[in-house]
Design a protein around this nucleic acid. Structure first.
Lengths: 338, 338
DNA sequence: CTGTTAGCGCCTTCAG
DNA sequence: CTGAAGGCGCTAACAG
């Protein structure tokens, strides 16, 4: 069977109406009597007519599509955010498109790709956002919302979370358990959130009157392997009874490092993560961590984007969502403390 | 700055040539002197001209886009396959689009979405492929390749792996270690691969002259939680010294179940998975598992799809890739055996 | 409530 | 090697 292409003209001819009427019916607009509507719909059904996406876009100027770009597209982190976006956009008759690229770096190209009539708007998840890219988006006038950007202060509407407060809660939890010798493993250096989280640690230590010892602070990337490596170094300090980590993957890596050094978690060492990925609760032992409301972040971003696309001004263009500490099994009182 | 739209006409005017010439230059076709080419390219650069995707598609009939649909879009499993696809398509000047949907079920709708001029071809990852969907694709004449479909025997080119052989290797490995009391946890029932894998277990047991005891065979879905639950039941049988699982997530769930029942892995119980997701090697203890060549599966599928799109007939339309056993730390000789 | 006219931006003819 | 005319399929805008 040859690829059947059903055009609006065919439907119009069969139904004995004009193409315009078919268009109105198909798009659920006013302007068609019930009788006509029924007749048209019947023909549409019989012929299996669906409007051609390109033609529709070309003439209407809107695509009904939202593009999503994420650095590590298919991480659990991005996954949860994307689900939030999808939920919010579901009733808006919009479809989502993720752009996939082997090369995680070329953010600019990926924005470019989406910007030539493919989508009505863009959501960037944890983007690097070099100034040129921001400028490009602004010049194009492409509706865009940014979720958890590496740099703050970019001139685009953004959604972030209260990183500092989350880590402060985590650190205070350890202090309340009786820990005094608490280390910290930062996430990727080139991230504003990394600094914000670290500030939470410093704040909590200061408030408790505990010293912040630079020798007990290290930097990792956001990966398991990096967490393992960095923790292996940090744990040469046998006085440490707890470590706060800048991400769950780092925490899980650190946990395995501790184990390989013969230190049991949480008995010999308490560990806290950040993110609350699905893996955190499935880990052994289940990870105490700071939850980012990933789903809500996606929803908030999507809602803002729709507003922009529809020309409604944004009440606030900098949304900060709260973080919460989730207690599980990777933290306990240090040895010798009830 | 207002959204600047640069059309081919503007470029043509600025460069003092016809739109046709600009089109030829931009698309790298013959038919433009070097001088003209240079002049045009300079204007293109200065004005930041990029052809409008819809207009181009409407007139040329091709989009340069490949659509990907996966049931659980953002699993590690799909991730690896997608990366393979991306690698293969990179030099073909094609972009990938993933369709995202909150509702994992509506495969048909998602195919529909892509089929109206949005993409040149489709890759389905682990699709359910109900007959209607296959029929629709065939009627449309939409180039499509299927990777690891739930049902075999669909009339579309497909890529699968040798499931039976993988599990046979895994089971033989356990037998070689000295295990005799080996249980099996299947993956999702509604999957041909689930049965194929189970056959590998049965084959290996039979070859070794060991009985297959139905009471030692259970079914889970492909998730961690399901693996945990099912294993908890299966392990009431204290005679079991090893369990083969139909997927890595199930194996990881089973491992935690064993631990919560006070059985150490691998000392009291050996566990083998299937997939070799990134998590398998990061797990504690690292998971012995059967590797699916996910990356190669993606590449093979993409290569086949390009052939179809370009009108070259496929040499084979049923590709089966090999699986290999990866030995790690979750398997060991049973207690009492050197 | 329905039909007509025009054009979205590009590419495929066919001439020159 | 370059230009001019036409149309891809649909929808705005205006008639009737």
């Amino acid at each position: 069977m040859p690829p059947e292409k059903v055009t609006i003209a065919q439907v119009a001819a069969e139904a004995g109406v004009s193409a315009m009427t078919v268009s109105n019916v198909v798009n659920g607009r006013a302007g068609a009597s019930d009788a006509t509507r029924q007749r048209v719909l019947k023909v549409v059904e019989r012929l299996g007519y669906k409007p051609n996406a390109s033609a529709r876009t070309l003439s209407s100027g809107r695509t009904g599509l939202i593009g999503i770009i994420a650095l590590d597209l298919i991480s659990e982190y991005a996954h949860e955010i994307v689900r939030g976006i999808a939920v919010e956009l579901a009733d808006d008759e919009r479809e989502l498109l993720l752009n996939v690229s082997i090369d995680a770096i070329r953010e600019r190209e990926r924005v470019d790709f989406f910007s030539h009539g493919l989508v009505d708007g863009l959501i960037l998840i944890a983007p690097a956002l070099e100034p040129r890219t921001v400028e490009f988006i602004q010049d194009k006038g492409l509706p865009t919302v940014v979720i958890d950007p590496r740099r703050l202060g970019v001139g685009l509407p953004r959604v972030t979370v209260d990183n500092t407060d989350g880590v402060r809660q985590a650190t205070e939890h350890l202090i309340a358990l009786g820990h005094r010798e608490i280390g910290y493993i930062k996430g990727e250096e080139d991230h504003e959130s990394t600094e914000a989280r670290y500030r939470g640690y410093v704040d909590a230590m200061r408030i408790a009157g505990l010293p912040v010892d630079e020798a007990r602070v290290s930097s990792a990337s956001f990966s398991y392997a990096s967490g393992f490596r960095v923790a292996t170094g940090l744990l040469r300090d046998e006085g440490l009874t707890a470590v706060v980590c800048g991400s769950d993957l780092v925490a899980i890596g650190a946990m395995d490092a501790a184990r390989s050094l013969g230190r049991a978690v949480p008995d010999d060492l308490s560990i806290v993560g950040f993110d609350d990925l699905p893996r955190a609760s499935q880990n052994y032992p289940a990870l105490t961590t700071v939850r980012q409301p990933l789903h809500d972040m996606g929803q908030a971003g999507a809602r803002a984007l729709i507003s922009i696309i529809e020309g409604r001004p944004l009440a606030v263009d900098r949304m900060t969502l709260p973080t919460t500490l989730v207690l599980r099994d990777s933290t306990a009182a240090p040895r010798g403390v009830a």
